[in-house]
Design a protein around this nucleic acid. Sequence first.
DNA 1: CGTCTCCTTGATGATTCTCAATGCGCGTGG
DNA 2: CCACGCGCATTGAGAATCATCAAGGAGACG
Lengths: 247, 247
Amino acid sequence: MHIAISKPQPVTGLRPVSLRRLSAFADLGLADEALVRRLKPRTLANGSILSVASNEGTGSWLLLGGWAARVRTMPDGRRQIVHLLLPGDPVNVSGGWAGDRLPIVALTPVIAADADLLRTVLKMGGPEHSALALACARASWCEQVYCLNAIVRLGQQTAYERLAHLFLEIDARLKAVGLVSDGRFQLPVTQDVIAHTLGLSLVHLSRTLRQMRKEGSIAMRPGHVELLKPDVLAAAAGFPHAATWPD
Amino acid sequence: MHIAISKPQPVTGLRPVSLRRLSAFADLGLADEALVRRLKPRTLANGSILSVASNEGTGSWLLLGGWAARVRTMPDGRRQIVHLLLPGDPVNVSGGWAGDRLPIVALTPVIAADADLLRTVLKMGGPEHSALALACARASWCEQVYCLNAIVRLGQQTAYERLAHLFLEIDARLKAVGLVSDGRFQLPVTQDVIAHTLGLSLVHLSRTLRQMRKEGSIAMRPGHVELLKPDVLAAAAGFPHAATWPD
DNA sequence: CGTCTCCTTGATGATTCTCAATGCGCGTGG
DNA sequence: CCACGCGCATTGAGAATCATCAAGGAGACG
């Protein structure tokens, strides 16, 4: 069963996916929406570097389509995907999050709105964009929660459990931006990517996927995944990925 | 070779360890120092809960002696230590860090200054304590970096590599507050704690420690560790834990 | 002296990795 | 249109890492 590289996911619905995502965090005003809409979308090829390590103030984006990841590479070449970035995610917009200093790589062709302007505006702290600033801060908070979850996943769980947990997390995140239909979501990355996210070898991940398929817990069509038995997966995942925010 | 539970580490030097730690991040003014000194130290028994999950605004501390940890427990009882808290660490003082929502458990008897007042004062954002706020924010930043490092450690490294990396991290952090002398630092926790930090079984950690001892990379006396061959350990650790901060 | 906690060690088994080979789909160029 | 190459997924076999179970010992403490 193959997972094919696909075209960037289209912007569905009337409002861009970025606005749908951010509105879930705060009631955006008209000025907020206008500012977000003004940001220029760009298309980036698979493998592009969206952001370089230790280079602050550049590489701010609102991800509109396609997947990307914060990656850490070790001197001997081993790679760990620290966090997956999905459509709707703001990246490097709010300050104060160390994850923003990790390099970001496009895992598929990507459409992203250049948010350097947004970052600059929010940094000034004007009250006219306080709702937008709050929304971005909460999105950043959620990303932190996902990273903390990753520590538990990698430290305590088996391959099967890790995969179940990750699938549920992706499902929930994509649902939040309306990218799950009929219980199916697009998985536009190779198994290599999932393996690097879960700290597993490609071969072992492939076997774990097969096991889930044979059990009937999931179904896969090229480039897509369907969670057939979310309760079974949730039982395996063991702990939730709920990302509630403070304030 | 045994690692004994020991008494809380004394506050060494003229200034409390918290001030030594924070001064490394920013030039504290007299008002800052006075505020920190005013916080009341308390003694907490081993196993005490310093902070409860999802309970904001309470459980702010400046750790003065002893070790604590942010812990995540799974429904079936498995535990992962997400982050170790060492003497000098401010915890739950700055806002905006999701790690502050994890439960904190004392791993040894602990001396900690109650920092609820500090948190409140900094939250008001007055300019008279901007340096102190900056120092706390940078400490929080460092903690985030350690958590991101943990993801790579758990996802990509072998038991030996993880242990080497953790020892170097602890060594560097304790050095920063003057708690390493003659290349030796206190390790006041049981091997169980280290195992839960590294996502390893107690037995396997014990064997890995033995291996390092036989190689002569480390030496252990009850409650203490000495890194005899830091270069060997660094080569195994593979990636640095440098925590530089922005702004 | 007995008990308790913690560390150590051995034996065994499960999980996971690595190496290697195969096959499928797809694009490219003849 | 077909042959070929390439990237990706799959599968098998064997080995390494790591976990679990179990037993024993050293030290602390009452």
